[in-house]
Amino acid sequence: MVDAVTATQVVMSVEAVEASQLGMKALAASIAIVGTGLASAWAELSIGSAAVGAVAENKDLFGSVLVLTIIPETIVIFGLVVGLLLIL
């Protein structure tokens, strides 16, 4: 009786572990994307505000500040890549 219960429990634990691993991967991927998304947003807020200020005074700076504003986007792309690597 005791052995049967233990065996059932072991079988259930393996399934639970597999499900849990998948869940953990999904959770890790979401954290990677959400974290880098927030970081990008924060960085772009600062750079964007300063960039708009600079362009308001000197329109010739538009090209340079546009590049600077999109640089933090790379952070969220890294997050997306990490997320995809975890899931796939």
Binding site: L45, S46, S49, A50, G53, A54, A56, E57, N58
Partner: peptide
């Protein structure tokens, strides 16, 4: 607090650029 810093960043950068035009 994060959003609140945006006007400071905007204004201070404007004045830095203006100072360069003197």
């Amino acid at each position: 607090a994060i959003v609140g810093s945006a006007p400071y960043l905007y204004v201070c950068t404007r004045f830095r650029v203006r100072r360069m035009k003197l």
